[in-house]
Simulated scan of single mutants.
Amino acid sequence: MLVADLLTSAQVVTPERVLAPGWLLVDGDRIAEVGEGAPPRSPDLDLDAATVVPGFVDLHVHGGGGASFDTGTADSALTVADAHLAHGTTSMAASLVTDTHDRMIDAVRELAELVRDGRLAGVHLEGPWLSPRRSGAHQPGSLSVPDPASVESLLAAGDGAVRMVTLAPELPGGIDAVRQLTNAGVVAAIGHTDATYDVTREALDAGARLGTHLFNAMRPLHHRDPGPVGALLESSADVELIADGVHLHPAVLRTVFAAKPGHCILVTDAMAAAGAPDGDYQLGPMAIEVRDGVARLADGTGNGAIAGSTLTMDAAVRYAVRTAGLPLLDVVHAASTAPARAWGLCDVGAIEPGRRADLVVLDADLDVVRVMRAGTCVSR
């Protein structure tokens, strides 16, 4: 069922400011008009004290609802997408962890079909070209160096569906791979890296324009050795942040938002347990234990490396606003507008005329009460 034409709400969050009160006119699957104050006529749907934000855009997610993208099957992928859609993510990447080359090729080919029909925004390869010293929850034996042929074969398998690749630029051939990806129109992201500051700067100069889950799985910032964190913070690159209270301290979130206004991107890095109970799961070929909502490599001690998250984007928004104390306008930009811009998704990510009517309605506690995708209610 299509949503009502004219919606009013206590707050409507646009890219520039929060309209209070605000209204918007939906024409089919598009936003036709947006305004502040009294609407031009009686609304078809008065959302009262709610806040309307653009549908969330998640560029880094591996799974959810008990399923994972790494299986490469359409059914699993749709389960993941539907699980996150209920939490307001209306555009999402299918992120793949390191696996054998052949299995990654097969998964990319299968997922590419869902990119072409619009269910997914694109494929993100997180590996296999990662640092063995910063591999995190990636199988060390499947890591490799990015030779031109292997890069090209994975991109070709997606036939345009691969939108982003995370790699460690210090690997042999790493800087050339950044150039190869950039020339192919793919976002080269720096992550799972032990690169020095100078090598990171070289990668940025070669075309890299995003940092994968900043601080996590990368050489740490030191006052005499700033490493990739220092290089990314002072650059114009976008940076991913996982706002779940496990990966980053709230003070770190505040610091990065202050240092890089407009260039912070909230991601979930969610694995299969997002929106699902604690238990034992797989992340690609790796066994994962989820206890008290925290995902770690299964090492028998409960203290294995963090292995993604069980986060959903609405929870990330709540944490960033209510715990870290960041302004709602900035947080919504990081959850919707900035990631859409980073991937060149001009159709989504903002409440403004001409964009697709992807909308999330939040209550006073920032909990999701309604989700609309392309003008249609998909959750309430």
Results as ranks from 00 to 15, higher is better:
Val108Cys: 05
Ser142Ile: 02
Ser150Gly: 14
Asp75Gln: 13
Gly63Lys: 00
Gly136His: 03
Pro169Trp: 11
Arg119Val: 10
Thr98Trp: 00
Leu130Ala: 03
Thr89Glu: 07
Val108Trp: 01
Leu96Lys: 00
Ser135Tyr: 05
Ala184Arg: 14
Ala156Leu: 08
Asn183Asp: 15
Ser91Gly: 14
Ala112His: 10
Ser153Pro: 04
Ala93Tyr: 04
Gly127Ala: 03
Gly55Glu: 04
Arg119Cys: 11
His84Tyr: 07
Val53Asn: 03
Ala184Met: 07
Glu152Cys: 09
Leu143Ala: 03
Val178His: 08
Val178Leu: 07
Ala195Met: 09
Asp147Thr: 13
Gly122Arg: 01
Asp106Thr: 15
Pro146Lys: 09
Ala177Arg: 02
Val108Gly: 03
Gly174Ala: 12
Thr182Trp: 08
Gly63Asp: 01
Ala93Gly: 06
Gly174Asn: 07
Thr100Phe: 09
Val80Ile: 11
Gly63Ile: 01
Val97Trp: 00
Ser131Gly: 10
Thr71Leu: 13
Ser91Arg: 15
Arg133Gly: 09
His84Glu: 11
Leu181Cys: 04
Val187Gln: 07
Ser153Met: 10
Ala195Asp: 14
Pro140Trp: 05
Thr182Pro: 11
Val162Glu: 10
Thr73Met: 10
Ser150Thr: 15
Asp147Val: 08
Val165Phe: 02
Gly122Leu: 04
Gly174Cys: 11
Gly55Met: 07
Ser91Thr: 15
Val115Arg: 02
Asp82Phe: 11
Ala112Leu: 10
Thr193Glu: 08
Asp194Tyr: 10
Asp194Gln: 13
Gly122Lys: 01
Arg116Leu: 12
Ala67Phe: 09
Gly64Phe: 02
Thr79Arg: 14
Arg179Trp: 06
Leu96Arg: 00
Val165Leu: 02
Val178Trp: 05
Val165His: 00
Val57Tyr: 05
Val165Gln: 01
Gly127Cys: 01
Ser68Pro: 05
Ala93Phe: 15
Ser91Leu: 12
Asp194Glu: 15
Gly191Ile: 00
Leu181Ile: 05
Ala157Ile: 06
Gly66Asp: 08
Phe56Glu: 05
Glu152Asn: 13
Arg103His: 13
Gln180Glu: 14
His192Gly: 01
Ala74Leu: 15
Ser150His: 13
Thr71Gln: 11
Val186His: 08
Leu155Arg: 09
Ser131Trp: 08
Asp194Lys: 10
Pro146Thr: 04
Gly158Ala: 11
Arg179Glu: 15
Val115Asp: 04
Arg133Thr: 15
Ala94Trp: 03
Ala86Asp: 12
Thr71Gly: 15
Gly122Tyr: 01
Asp176Leu: 06
Val178Arg: 09
Thr166Asp: 01
Gly65Ala: 06
Ile175Ala: 10
Pro132Ser: 13
His192Leu: 01
Ile105Trp: 14
Arg116Pro: 06
Leu125Gln: 03
Thr51Met: 06
Val151Gln: 03
Gly88Val: 07
Val108Thr: 07
Gly127Leu: 00
Ala112Glu: 12
